[in-house]
Every structure is written in structure tokens, then in C-alpha cells.
Design a binder for these strands. Structure first.
Lengths: 146, 146
DNA sequence: CTTTGTGCAAACGATTTGCAGGATG
DNA sequence: CATCCTGCAAATCGTTTGCACAAAG
């Protein structure tokens, strides 16, 4: 029993939700990858060998996992939601070429001073969203800024 | 002839695009408001008195305005794109209650050090996305963090 | 046996597209 | 008169929902 397993069992049960193979598969897949897949990517990935979950189930599983705080949505792209099993606060880097989204550790960006906000705005959370080009796309010549 | 007018005429013409009443209306509306409306909000707003532009035209106008760099998309919410006539770098505050998005001046957040990124990632731009509660929603009791 | 979950297919909402007619240069 | 733009309606894409059946407690 690894950490993932105990997490998901514990948290789902705490809310009276069942730990189904589908939910487990979604969570395990999300944990075992560094990127942030869309629902569709999860669907094809999970059913690659044996059909495990339908499209509708992927969505409801993702919703259940979000409700218990195991997964969160990442919105850095038009039209699609991406999902992230890393629920600790962190930042994101999005490659403009391949669209891949990479996590950036929280500590990397110091010095964001939320108290500098105008009075009246109560900040609860924040993240830095960086856009650029990653090394896999590096050799490309489409380099607008650098 | 104000700044907006000259901007839009100049930039559209530079790309061989025409300055139509519809495009002008979309841009003028976007400039004359501090929030970041959706395409649908723009549609109803612009046609409030006299029908000026159809839904499809709003979308193509927004695309044209984006192409010439007068407008940009803001993605801080699921399922809808919002639009912003402020193309200078700045940050965003999103109220979790009313969903409104407010601009935060670039200078407010100092100290984000992009060179702290792992080597291999070439940063081109970034923004800080803050979430919380604004003053209009303030009195509400749904206050998860504060 | 009561509750919760799955799968299918239909529904949905935001956005895009094909096409015919209109306006512009 | 050639090009670009608009408006309509149909198409598309991601996501959600209703419902019947299956599984778990």
C-alpha cells in the first residue's frame, strides 16, 4: 500500500464515496505522470490495454477526486481543462510550442507580496503562470522574444 | 479622434483588414469597461440599443483584434473565454464569488525572478493570477480562508 | 434492499465554419 | 469587379445529464 493508495482510500471514504477501479485508475494515472492531461488523454490512456472506464465515468471520477481534494483543474489553455494530482500550491510553465504544462516548485518564485494589492481585495491563493518554450521545442526557430 | 480610434485604424489597416463598425464597436466596448467580458456579454451589450453585430461576427471580430494585437484572451475560468483590451503585461485578480476579474498593475508584484526557472525553459512572459474575494462580495459569509 | 457508480446516448453551451448576399476599395 | 465582411444556420468540440442496470455496503 503506497501513499497514493492510502490517500485516495482515506479521502474518498471520508466523504462516503466508494473507491472504484475507475476512480483509482484515473488517480493513479494522474499521479504517475508529470504533465497535466486532458480528460480525453486520460480516457485513451487508461483504456489503452483493457477498457476500464467510459468517457462519462472519467468526468465524474475527476469530479469526485476534485471534491475530496485529490485533484485539481489547471486552466492555461483555451477550450480544455487539464488535471493535476499535485494539489500543493505551485506554479506552471506552459510551452507555447507543444502546449505541455510543467510544474514549477512553489519556492522558485519568492517575493510576490499579496499585501500590495489594493485594499478591498482579499487574496486567498495565487499562482504564477509562465509561458515560453521548453527544451524539447528549443531548436525551433519560432522564437518571438528571446 | 482619440487614442483608441487611431490605434484600431492603424493596426487593422497595417494588416490589410478593414475597420468595420462591428469591429470598432467590439473594441470600443472592450476599452470602455474595466472588467473582462465574455463573447456573449459583448454581444448583448453591443446590441443593447440597435442591433449592430451578430454572434458570429463578434467572434470573428475578436479574432481579428487579437491578430493585430489590440485584444487578448484571459483564461481564468472554466468553459468561457474572456477578453481584455489591455494588452500591456499585467496581473489578474478573480473573485471567487462573483467571478469578476480585475486588473492588477504590473508593478504591484515585484520580485518574480524568472531566472530561477530550471535551465531549459525559456520564459517569454508571465502573469500572477490571484484568487480571492472582492469588496462587493465581502459581506458574504462564504469565506473559506480568511 | 438501499445507496452509489457505471455506461450509453442524448443534451448542452461555447465556439467555429460554410455559404450566400452586401459593402468596400 | 475582386476582395473582404457579415449574418444565418449548421456543425463541432468539450463537458454534462438522464436513465437503466450493476455493484457495494
Amino acid at each position: 500500500m503506497n501513499e497514493q493508495s492510502s490517500h485516495i482510500i482515506e479521502l474518498l471514504k471520508a466523504k462516503g464515496l466508494r473507491v472504484t477501479p475507475q476512480r483509482f485508475a484515473v488517480y493513479a494515472n494522474l499521479c504517475g505522470r508529470g504533465d497535466h492531461p486532458t480528460a480525453e488523454q486520460l480516457l485513451t490512456d487508461i483504456n489503452q490495454d483493457v477498457p476500464i472506464a467510459s468517457q462519462a465515468t472519467i468526468y465524474t471520477a475527476l469530479q469526485a477526486l476534485q471534491n475530496v481534494g485529490l485533484v485539481r483543474e489547471v486552466l492555461l489553455e483555451e477550450g480544455v481543462a487539464r488535471y493535476d494530482a499535485n494539489v500543493h500550491p505551485h506554479h506552471h510553465f506552459r510551452c507555447r510550442c507543444c502546449g505541455e504544462i510543467e510544474d514549477i516548485a512553489w519556492e522558485v518564485f519568492q517575493g510576490v507580496n499579496l499585501s500590495a494589492l489594493r485594499p478591498g481585495l482579499k487574496a486567498e491563493q495565487y499562482e504564477v503562470a509562465v509561458q515560453g518554450v521548453c527544451d524539447r521545442c528549443e531548436p525551433a526557430s519560432i522564437n518571438a522574444f528571446a
